[in-house]
Design a protein around this nucleic acid. Structure first.
Length: 374
RNA sequence: GGAGGAAUAGCGAAGUGGCCAAACGCAGCUGACUGUAAAUCAGUUCCUUCGGGUUCGGUGGUUCAAAUCCGCCUUCCUCCA
């Protein structure tokens, strides 16, 4: 694996949380980290410059969506995803496995792969582990994902067992098909809420020796305690020296829990989506900017935040933009929520280095009051 | 002074005899959103002990039944003098 390796720099003595460095062809990033999601080769409403100002490292993009529009060949001709979207830091592409789940009523899964009715015009589309890898090689992200089946929750044990077996076979096929030396292909642990299947899936993937491992099948409608259990049931079976990525998790309490359990990478649409819907994460908890009580509130969204939005604008202005459905409002709020999570990660890393992540988590959650939404 | 027209819930605006506690939009309030088919979606905004009760400028009528028809009053708009 050219240019890609992972270094653990410190393990928190209080919790086992990890501080590390992920080296990629597009630079090094510190973990634990939060990765903003830019499904269609753009983090909705934000420029790469704004993302970097938020402190972004890796960002995500999506194989399924980009293969439909503009098509992998066009991204390839553009010189790859980094050039195409003008982002020179690391990029991770998801395999499309999640779309198999989220567009579930329009697909059929077989051993060979998945047949989709694509969501744009209903045209039939076939995805296999090899095809997903082929597309991702053209897109050219630094970190890519195996095609997996994100089985629904709840699922029966038998369904999940079969699904895990197939995901493992698909992982092997994808790994065999993957040729690019400058990309790290991660395997994805499934198994739902079943401890033994999580363990089995993790151990089998580890035998295949991937450069990193993802925890999938979370945040798909299961209760929080079940999600936490899924995480706790997986990380013990992953090798210490490889990066671990918890897919699709972006609520504050779940991220902090994941870090405590030894997860290094998180991604989620949550901060950007809820920002567009007027919900903001602040150090004192949730703020609904649409509330009339902010109409004459000329203070920043979060006085403790150092983002462009909080440094320059008031809640009254943000509410005004939101109520008028102005694009700039969505941008400012997205900047804030992304910066909030990235800043939380910066603080988490400091806490890990100082062997006090457990204290940090407790203090942060007490103030954030995560019972009130996300 | 004369001739027309209009008054509907916080605002705008449908409704012209029973299916109207009254469409719809805005505004307000709740909630949802987690590997993005999401600048989206759902609920809610007269009172209620959930049986019902009081509403459509005011008032008096007609009718089994009125936001809807008639009289008078008030306010506003347009045109003519």
């Amino acid at each position: 694996m050219k240019d890609f390796y992972f270094e653990i720099k410190h393990i928190c003595k209080q919790t086992g949380a990890r501080y590390g460095l992920l080296h990629t062809p597009h630079g090094d990033v510190e973990v634990p980290m939060f990765m903003p999601v830019g499904t269609l080769a753009t983090v909705k409403s934000l420029s790469p410059e704004e993302l970097k100002e938020c402190g972004s490292g890796v960002i995500l993009s999506n194989t399924y969506h980009l293969s439909l529009r503009p098509g992998a060949d066009i991204v390839d001709k553009a010189g790859g995803l980094h050039k195409f979207m003008n982002y020179d830091r690391p990029i991770l592409t998801d395999s499309g496995g999640f779309q198999v789940f989220s567009l579930a009523d329009k697909r059929k899964i077989t051993e060979e792969g998945v047949t989709f009715k694509n969501h744009l015009n209903g045209a039939k589309l076939f995805f296999s582990p090899e095809i997903a890898i082929g597309i991702q090689e053209k897109l050219g992200a630094d970190i890519i994902m195996s095609l997996d089946e994100c089985a629904p929750y709840p699922a029966t044990y038998d369904y999940m067992k079969n699904s895990v077996e197939r995901t493992l076979r698909w992982a092997k096929r994808g790994k065999d098909a993957h040729k690019r030396e400058d990309q790290a292909l991660f395997g994805i642990v499934q198994g739902g809420e079943f401890s033994d299947l999580r363990k089995y899936c993790a151990e089998e993937l580890v035998k295949m020796d991937f450069p990193g491992y993802s925890i999938g099948g979370t945040s798909i409608g299961e209760p929080k305690n079940v999600m936490f259990k899924m995480i706790a049931d997986t990380t013990p079976y992953l090798p210490i020296e490889k990066p671990r990525y918890l897919m699709g998790v972006g609520s504050v309490d779940a991220i902090l829990y994941g870090i405590e359990k030894g997860v290094d990478m998180f991604d989620c649409v949550l901060p950007t989506r809820i920002a567009r819907h007027g919900a903001l994460m602040t150090s004192n908890g949730r703020v609904n900017i649409r509330d009339q009580k902010y109409a004459e509130d000329f203070t920043p969204l979060d006085p403790e935040c150092d983002c462009y939005c909080c440094k320059n604008y008031t809640k009254a202005y943000l509410r005004h933009l939101y109520k008028c459905d102005e694009i700039f409002g969505k941008r400012l709020l997205s900047i804030h929520n992304i910066r909030f999570l990235i800043h939380m990660m910066e603080e988490a890393r400091e806490a890990i280095k100082n062997d006090r992540f457990g204290d940090f988590k407790k203090e942060f959650l007490a103030k954030f009051n995560s019972e009130r939404g996300f």
